[in-house]
Design a protein around this nucleic acid. Structure first.
Length: 224
DNA sequence: CGCCAGGCCGTGT
DNA sequence: ACACGGCATGGC
């Protein structure tokens, strides 16, 4: 499925951001929120010279809320961003490079302990900001995997992640980060047009795809 | 107007 | 452990 998406859409070279810290901010802001709205919040921050560790650190909580207002959940997300910078300052001298130098497993656990960081945000930061090989599981990938009957509807994050990681088992260690990046980018690409709450399978590159070990050939309501 | 968006968290069972 | 509602705003 990865290869089919790649030949359909081509390499994405993904995550629109200038710096690693912008990636982190984007990862927080895009939680259950359209990227369009995130861009406006990021533009607000940039206009206030606040799209940096020092910038977020210097902002007052209320001021930060107003700048990120377009992307929603402003009270929670402002507190979460503040908490991230505080963590970075306390444990890594305010440096994302220092955080990136730590073992990925340790960093993941620390990120998950932060408020407003669940498994997807943690893995997105690991992959796109810290350059670690991490399979990012979003709602689109969950729908793809369950609708194609690769896993049951109840499948949890870790199970879906394991399946996605398995799909990249043949890639060499030095190319794994690039493949994880490309994989997630392509999932979002196909997901935006075809994997909403209601599946739109017309013209989908994955339409008609069924694994040979699919749990069920087809069921009413969901189209493989 | 109603549904949706690249989740996460507190609460109740 | 797991289901469920709330969180905020903007686009279509």
């Amino acid at each position: 499925m990865y290869e089919r998406l790649l030949s359909e859409y081509g390499p994405q070279q993904w995550w629109p951001a200038e710096t690693a810290f912008e990636v982190v901010v984007g990862a927080y802001l895009t939680q259950n929120t359209s990227w369009r709205a995130v861009e406006r919040s990021m533009a607000n921050l940039a206009a206030h010279q606040s799209l940096s560790v020092e910038g977020i650190r210097s902002l007052g909580e209320e001021e930060l809320r107003q700048l990120i207002r377009p992307s929603g959940y402003m009270v929670r997300k402002a507190a979460a961003l503040k908490a991230f910078v505080a963590f970075l300052d306390r444990d890594h001298g305010g440096s994302l490079e220092a955080l990136a130098a730590a073992p990925a497993a340790d960093s993941r656990a620390k990120l998950l302990a932060l408020p407003g960081v669940g498994p997807e945000t943690a893995d997105a930061i690991l992959l796109y900001a810290l350059g670690k090989p991490a399979m990012v599981v979003d709602e689109y990938l969950r729908r793809i995997v369950t609708r194609h009957r690769l896993l049951p509807e109840k499948a949890k994050y870790a199970e879906i992640q394991a399946l996605g990681t398995e799909a990249l088992r043949d890639s060499a260690p030095e190319t794994l980060v690039r493949h994880c990046n490309e994989f997630h980018a392509l999932v979002v690409m196909v997901g935006k047009t075809h994997c909403g709450p209601k599946p739109k399978c017309e013209g989908c590159p994955l339409a008609g795809y069924l694994p040979k070990d699919a749990l069920v050939p087809s069921l009413p309501g969901t189209l493989p």
